[in-house]
Amino acid sequence: MTTLPQISLAKLAATATRREERQRLQMACEEFGFFYLVEHGIPKEQITQAIEASRRFFALPQSIKERYGHAAQGMYPTIARGYSRLRGEILHPDAGPDPKEVFDLGIDSEGDRRPFAGSTRFPDDALAPGFARSLLALQTTVLDGVVPQLGTALADLIGMEEGWFPRHFSPPTLGQRVIRYPARGGTCAKHTDGGFFTLLLQEELPTRSLQVWFRERWMPVPSLPDSLVVNLGDMLQALSDDRFKSTPHQVAHSGESDRISLPFFIYPDIDACLTSCQGRHAFRVAEMMLRNFESVEAGNGAGRARELQ
Rank of each mutant, 00 (worst) to 15 (best):
K245T: 06
V285N: 07
Q278E: 13
A298F: 10
A298N: 07
S240Y: 04
L201H: 06
D241C: 03
A189G: 12
K245S: 03
V296E: 11
E203A: 02
L239A: 02
G195H: 02
F244G: 03
L274Q: 06
L205G: 00
L224V: 13
S246V: 05
T207Q: 12
P263H: 08
L205P: 01
D234T: 02
T275M: 08
A272S: 04
F196Q: 01
N292R: 10
S209H: 03
I260Y: 08
T192D: 12
H191Q: 09
A252V: 11
M288D: 02
S257T: 12
T207M: 03
C277G: 09
L236V: 05
F283A: 00
M235S: 14
I266H: 02
E216S: 04
F196M: 04
V296G: 14
T247I: 03
S209W: 03
A298M: 07
L201I: 06
S276P: 10
L232P: 04
P222F: 05
T187C: 13
L274F: 07
W218D: 01
P263E: 07
C188A: 15
H253K: 14
T207A: 05
H191E: 12
T198Q: 11
W218H: 04
M219S: 10
L224Q: 15
H191V: 06
R243F: 10
R291K: 15
C277R: 10
S240H: 01
D269I: 01
S223P: 07
A298K: 10
S240Q: 01
G279H: 06
R291D: 13
D258M: 04
E216L: 09
E216P: 04
C188G: 14
A189T: 14
S276M: 10
T207R: 06
M289S: 04
S223H: 08
R217Q: 15
D242T: 14
G194T: 06
E203S: 02
D234A: 05
I260F: 08
P225C: 13
A238V: 11
E287Y: 12
A189K: 14
S209T: 03
A189F: 13
C188M: 14
Q250T: 01
D193C: 05
Y267V: 00
I270G: 07
Q211V: 09
S276W: 12
V296Q: 13
E294C: 01
A282S: 14
Q278P: 09
F244N: 00
Q250R: 15
L201E: 02
T187A: 11
N292F: 05
P263F: 08
P220D: 10
M288F: 07
S261F: 02
D241I: 04
S240A: 03
F197V: 12
C273R: 14
